[in-house]
Nucleic acid binder design. Structure first.
Lengths: 202, 202
DNA sequence: ATTTTGACTTTGTAACTAAAAAAGTCAGAA
DNA sequence: TTCTGACTTTTTTAGTTACAAAGTCAAAAT
């Protein structure tokens, strides 16, 4: 039987090394050999832990996503109102998107529409939408917001927020924005959030 | 001295022929020779009226844009409230975007960022934003909406609406959507408009 | 004088190629 | 069970050509 402890540890080391490369250069410019060299191991070893390059990229994505959701949840729990929770989440999301865009993981993962990648993105979006819906529901119960279809409103909110990014950059999903552009997006998102939440109130 | 009447007439005939080709096939797939052949004239003639291909494309765009704004204004004037005006505008915009996307004018015009093209788009968006701002101001004056920075709110509204398209299609600006996709976008836009307007009310 | 054109040059693009780089495999060593 | 060197296969890239479309211009037609 395999030693799952050591196995997971090595997997983590690989993911860490990959993440380091990705943040410095980018996922598209990073080769499996480079990651292997960083770890002083052979490329073949990487393939012992991950079936292919895509799986490794996906693992990096999942790890980053987990950290994101943890922080998102923490921020949501801390907030005193639905209004505040939604506003606070914007900053958390921005920090993540900003960091994540640098990895350029989109490019490598995007074209394989069918398999796990698209699914991972869909699930991530659903998870975040669910969190927003929960916040809205909480607001409704506490009498802060008017009664509404929380799931639908959460989807609408997510789509609107995401959309602002694209509308402002008029670039594709994969491209990353400059820091200045990110700030502009954030400002608009905050403004939209304010109006949106006001529209949800009683 | 040149005969401006005949000159403009010929320019119009060329624009018409180009538009016909663009709608049937698309701007990217249409050559100057094809347009010339349709008009039973030589390609060189086209260059007598338009300095280059881009200028012709831009002329087609401008003509379509004019018709769009005329209709948009008409719809805005007819509406009884700011609320209704904004909702009505969505349909007009959709009919236009739908038709316009088929032309695939974006592709040809997009890459020449600096020159007139980007400027034309910027101006068009500004014009539409100004119309929305006017509607919002009207709503504020009539007591329908709360006092606010109408220009800023109009920009935010425009960006949000445009963004929804991109967020839902996750494709680039240039790509056109299927009719079914367009309907989905429209539904979300209407929902966002409702919330947004509610957020603007007193 | 203005408009049009055929014949021309220049520019862009699609289609092929070869070479290099990276992905991915596997028998056998540790 | 984990790891690796040496291997094969696939993907990128850079270079090439060949063709199509853009764009020009001197001269003809109106």
């Amino acid at each position: 039987m395999q030693d799952n402890h050591n196995r997971d540890e090595m997997r983590d080391r690989i993911i860490e090394a990959a993440l380091k490369r990705f943040t410095h250069y980018s996922a598209t410019k990073t080769t499996m050999n480079e990651i292997a060299d960083d770890l002083h191991c052979s490329k073949a070893s990487l393939y012992y832990y991950f079936p292919d390059k895509g799986a490794l990229h996906l693992a990096v994505l999942e790890k980053a996503g987990e950290a994101y959701f943890t922080e998102l949840q923490k921020e949501a729990d801390r907030a005193s109102s639905a209004h505040q929770a939604l506003l606070d989440m914007i900053s958390v999301r921005h920090a993540f998107v900003k960091k994540f865009c640098r990895l350029e993981l989109f490019k490598t993962l995007k074209d394989k529409q069918l398999d796990s990648t698209g699914e991972a993105f869909r699930q991530a979006r659903e998870k975040e939408t669910a969190l927003i819906a929960k916040i809205i529901r909480g607001g409704v119960e506490r009498g802060e917001l008017a009664n509404c279809d929380a799931d639908r409103m959460a989807s609408l909110y997510m789509l609107s927020m995401m959309g602002l990014r694209f509308a402002l950059s008029d670039r594709a999903f994969t491209d990353d924005l400059s820091d200045a552009e990110f700030e502009v997006v954030r400002e608009w998102q905050i403004q939209l959030a304010e109006i949106f939440i006001k529209g949800l109130k009683k």
